[in-house]
Design a protein around this nucleic acid. Sequence first.
RNA 1: GGGAGAGUGUCCCGAGUGGCAAAGGGGGAGGACUGUAAAUCCUCUGGCUACGCCUUCGUAGGUUCGAGUCCUACCUCUCCCA
Length: 418
Amino acid sequence: MATYKSDFLNILSERGFIHQVSEPDVLDARAVEGQITAYIGFDCTAASLHIGSLLPIMMLYWLQQTGHRPIALMGGGTTRVGDPSGKDESRRILTENDINNNLVGIRAIFSKFLKFENAGGNAIMSNNADWLNKLNYIDFLRDVGKHFSVNRMLAFDSVKMRLERQQELSFLEFNYMVLQAYDFVELNKLYGCTLQMGGSDQWGNIVSGIDLGRRMNGAQMFALTAPLITTSSGAKMGKTAAGAVWLNADMVSPYDYWQYWRNTEDGDVVRFLKLFTTLPLAEIAKLAALQGADINEAKKVLATEATALVHGRAAADEAAGTARKTFEEGTFAQSLPTVEVARATLEQGIGVLNAFAELTALVSSNGDARRQIKAGGLKVNDANVTDEKMTLTAKDLTADGAIKLSLGKKKHVLIKPV
RNA sequence: GGGAGAGUGUCCCGAGUGGCAAAGGGGGAGGACUGUAAAUCCUCUGGCUACGCCUUCGUAGGUUCGAGUCCUACCUCUCCCA
């Protein structure tokens, strides 16, 4: 592992964030001399960011923590185009309205990791729609387009792959890389931003920006990419059966978020502790020494720390407590996800199928509920459901005043009368 | 503009002779084993008021007792020629 002189690169390097760096020595020296400004671009294709975006966010976090200035660039303009990198097919093109709505949700997440001006920090949130939307096509071609070689663009992996697979690549998408390069140059001009970070798939786009900056303004700029994070078993991170693991609490509850990290594979725990928590490396080293079943302790730390970053310490501790009661003590946790039901409805009785499928959505349909019953996967108050005609009534309320429905061993929902 | 192909189980890939709720994977869910892990094994993976009914193979029509499969038009994509 290369050793750097700057805190910034050292920390990123030790914690496993670095895949490739352009001119590492020069960048390192710059970071020692004074404050550098760096940016990462984010899509706004959804109303929230998910775990996949967490890695770049952490890079900005460490950037600020080591005394530099982070810029979170919202792709309000480029989202209207769509990045072909790593995509087999064209993205859906969103309307401007959708994009603006998404921006609002995403902003909220950033403020948990970065200190912006209004919170006494120096972080900047920018939106490339501010300059991209104003571009004049002819001017842009003349000033920027002349610096791009189509021959070279065709050689880029993202483009080459599409061509080789005989998948269409529209001119619109082909321009994505040009726009991203232009973003970098624009941020360089506006804020003196000299470093762009991103996932390893962004290398080509970032380097294009560096070239463009040199040609247009003689600027010296840098690239730093993070490795693509997959789980030990090779799966992409952040997807579960229910969909992406979002960072917004109203899309994925802190409890579920905690559970996501709790279920990390053994082989990933240490790597994830370094990447997705801010625990000192010395402490992580202690946790790394754990073997066998004791690794579960490390997983709990990972879950709690990672949850605390996104949802706050209180929510993280509550999630940890709920999990402890539910899984280790086998007792009732009032803080499990809860569905409220009118008392009168409960008096009349609720069919199990209905309770699992519609009320709590633990399963996707009545048919699915039947299948799970057959497979022994549904439980009411920890007792297996064997009869699909079973009815839940007020009699099933436990001493704690709720009925606990479970799918498998891990998913639990409480029904409470109101 | 001309010619040749492609679009399949609303996650993805992918077989499919006129009888098809449609092979096989991947992914996912549950069970067994465990440590809320991995690996392995087993089961399941359209919906419903359920021995029946309804909805699915790009879209809309048609032929047929019967269409994913045949015909027509259209849409989208790919390739070749202009």
